[in-house]
């Protein structure tokens, strides 16, 4: 079945699976997982260099041609997010930024208000802004208004593997936000959960923790890739609605019986 490409800020992507690069025990698994996932957009973070010890360079494990999406993790308000984004752009690695503003250390919930502010400032400065957000319709509309190139609602808490706890609210965003892609981010712990998100019409999924923590990260990355593709095809094919009563899949009449079972 022919699918239209995922388009973000005028750039097209064949894959609807975006992969995060955090928490991998072995950096070589990052490269293998990107390969197995088919992901064309990969997230990274910025950190102060530890001047006391040598740290491995994450970029050497990310193949050429991949679109780097730098997150603003560590930002507690819009000003900090803006600062991190500006630093990231200075690296020469592009101007795609995933706004992530978190000031709750227990649940790591995104602060939608601060995220809208940062989106407005950075969009005006020419950044391609993909904001991570709590799935609230008003906030999503404000983000679109502020110039977001996509909206990234959380499925559930970051790193929790709880799946689509916010399903009904993501469904509202899918229904109401037509201007930009809806990318489900955070909490997706199993391929079936990503398929579920895609079946209901999400445009893409971003996964990190589940893949990074798998015994075989590349294996799970491939499984996610298939599930996301599967969910997308199911969505495009229009899944029939569930019904209360049974409906025979095979004809029940004119074989062994004189009468139709239903009469």
């Amino acid at each position: 079945m022919k699918d239209s490409p995922l388009t973000i800020a005028g750039k097209t992507f064949t894959s609807r699976f975006m992969l995060g690069t955090g928490k991998f025990k072995n950096k070589s698994d990052v490269e293998k997982s990107i390969g197995a996932s088919g992901a064309e957009i990969v997230t990274v973070a910025l950190r102060r260099i530890d001047v006391e010890r040598h740290e491995e360079n994450i970029l050497q494990y990310i193949p050429e041609g991949i679109t780097l999406l730098t997150n603003t993790s560590g930002a507690r308000n819009s000003q900090e997010a803006v600062r991190i984004a500006r630093l990231a752009r200075e690296s020469g690695c592009g101007n795609w930024v995933k706004i992530e503003v978190i000031n709750d250390s227990k649940y790591l919930l995104p602060d939608n208000n601060e995220t809208v502010k940062a989106t407005e400032i950075l969009s005006a400065e020419g950044f391609i802004v993909l904001p991570y957000m709590f799935p609230d319709l008003y906030a999503a509309r404000a983000l679109v208004e502020a110039g977001a190139a996509a909206v990234m609602p959380l499925g559930s808490l970051i790193g929790s593997n709880q799946g689509l706890k916010a399903k009904e609210f993501i469904r509202i965003l899918i229904d109401e936000i037509d201007e930009v892609p809806i990318i489900v981010d955070a909490g997706i712990g199993a391929p079936s959960q990503s398929a579920e998100a895609m079946e209901m019409g999400a445009d893409a999924c971003l996964v990190n923790t589940a893949v990074a923590n798998a015994e075989d990260p590349a294996g799970l990355a491939e499984a996610f890739s298939l599930a996301i593709r599967s969910g997308r095809l199911a969505y495009l094919s229009k899944i029939p609605a569930a019904q209360e009563a049974a409906e025979p899949s095979s004809p029940l009449t004119n074989f062994l019986y004189e009468h139709d079972l239903s009469s």
């Binding site: 995060g20 928490k23 991998f24 910025l46 102060r48 994450i58």
Partner: peptide, 24 residues
């Protein structure tokens, strides 16, 4: 980057050096 060579670090300077790490 092109200004690094001519940027002097003086007494009391506050310098931040950052780079990329894995992240979600």
């Amino acid at each position: 980057l092109e200004q690094w060579e001519e940027t002097s670090i003086k007494e009391g300077a506050v310098v931040e050096l950052v780079s990329f790490v894995g992240g979600g």
